[in-house]
Design a protein around this nucleic acid. Sequence first.
DNA 1: CGGACGGTTGATGCGTATCAATAAAGGTGG
DNA 2: CCACCTTTATTGATACGCATCAACCGTCCG
Lengths: 299, 299
Amino acid sequence: MRVNTSTTETIMSEAAQLIHHDRSHQISSRERLPSFPSRAPAGMPSPMMDDSADLQDSILPFQGFQTLQDPQQRMLEMMRTVRELVQPASKVVRPGDVLYHSGLPFNTVFLINSGAYKLVSRSLDGREQIVSLKFRGDWLGFSGIAHGRHACDAVAMDTGNVSIIPYATLLEGCVRHPELMAVVHEAMSTEIRRERESLMSVCTLASQARVAEFLCAWARSMAQRGLRADELTLRMTRADLGNYLGMTLETVSRCLSRLNREQLIRFGERGRRQISIPDLARLEQYVISGSSARTARLQ
Amino acid sequence: MRVNTSTTETIMSEAAQLIHHDRSHQISSRERLPSFPSRAPAGMPSPMMDDSADLQDSILPFQGFQTLQDPQQRMLEMMRTVRELVQPASKVVRPGDVLYHSGLPFNTVFLINSGAYKLVSRSLDGREQIVSLKFRGDWLGFSGIAHGRHACDAVAMDTGNVSIIPYATLLEGCVRHPELMAVVHEAMSTEIRRERESLMSVCTLASQARVAEFLCAWARSMAQRGLRADELTLRMTRADLGNYLGMTLETVSRCLSRLNREQLIRFGERGRRQISIPDLARLEQYVISGSSARTARLQ
DNA sequence: CGGACGGTTGATGCGTATCAATAAAGGTGG
DNA sequence: CCACCTTTATTGATACGCATCAACCGTCCG
């Protein structure tokens, strides 16, 4: 029940100097944003907006950025769209910084340019739960829209950089630029999907498989962002991991040790938080083969 | 791995005759929708949104429908907004009907007028997981926006009625009517929140407390919709319950029996799926007191 | 009637939580 | 630099919650 001492306010007042740990970081700052011309993704069918709309959409599925097959391209495209249409300010965050606190008034969302973040929910009776991990290209704060107050804490786990987007500005932008609205909807939809994947993982997998799947997901997540996927640097303690995965820190430790013993992962030289995955496909196979272990029956 | 035989197509072609099981059902069928004047439930102050909405939101935290304190009023307001601005068709569904299948092209969302629905996700290796339960006022299909394909099955657990809203139409409406966009954003935000509450429940509560909390949540959910909250009719088997809550059907059964023995719930005369809650506050207290049972420590 | 399905309850074993001891890593001040 | 403390991680022993297997009952329905 400890409260992180660095408040949002202190962050706000920090000078914005970016440390380039993160290889993913491309955008240096807002200066270059405004002048950016509007380029359409190759072959994008410009969905929805002509009012004489084809009523084919009852036939064809709705397509947002689906036409861009490569997820990394899609992400870059999305971020560029936001930068162009919203021209947000950005700020640097350091490990432990809290972007927003649960319960405080919601009026801003963030788009992550770099870094890793955890979202921590708290129940009325004090239970803490890490409900989500976020990286470059993810949004922070959507859960606060519903009741005008943030539903969780957003904590940086690493040095990083986020775009600051007042929600009112975002709404305004969405009205003016339907493609921005499509982007936002997609982002929220993705968030819903991922939340459900977590639930599925916790509900259907034994702890060992769950840890393995977590690593797979992290690796895939990195790959999708164009980062190294075979060499993970977990930015969290075993306690955090366990909390997120619904098990104790001891169990996490044991599972990792076992995976290491079975050669499915290897611990790095720079501490036990660095994990290399020699063969991702084999690790994924391991998850599948171990998945029958728990509550797999319905009916 | 069984596949429900009734496909979306067959539903689509069904004649729309509504059976009034559900006391929540107000709108009888699509015929009366277009001509429907803004009918207010008795005593509703009808604080309809003036379009010349205050642009204070840049100062105050963003407020969608926050000004309406009563959640039930907010829901009615929301549904009215959608009906007015989208004028959707509606259709009747019967238990077991599938509104959409995972993997099929996404082009429609649904707004629930009545009934109870479960969302079932499937992993690549065949694990099934009920990821969400939905009721009147909830939306179905948002998770499909992200990749243009539905991410889960939506299955009716009871006779009910849903508004059919082509996503293209919804987007168009959002562009034209920002208040509709606010409604949609709120709905998605709420969905994210609830998904996280599920995760928190599964990760931090022992099975007994989890079942108790599930009942509390259902009761609150009913109350919020103006339905009886002290007399629940679960529309699902123990297997479904167990799947949703991350435990086996036997454990669900045992937990319910124990809660019954301890007088926290009482089984109804019309079968063991009907559960009455004599004292909701006491049940909620039980959840809290039992919550320390599992993995409550972080750090 | 018989058979399928849903639900309950008991006996047993496994998977994790829990408790505890130790080691390793990181930070601080002398 | 080292001594010291705190935090983090690992590993073992044990206990307990829940999954699993199985038997049984009630209801529905062809």
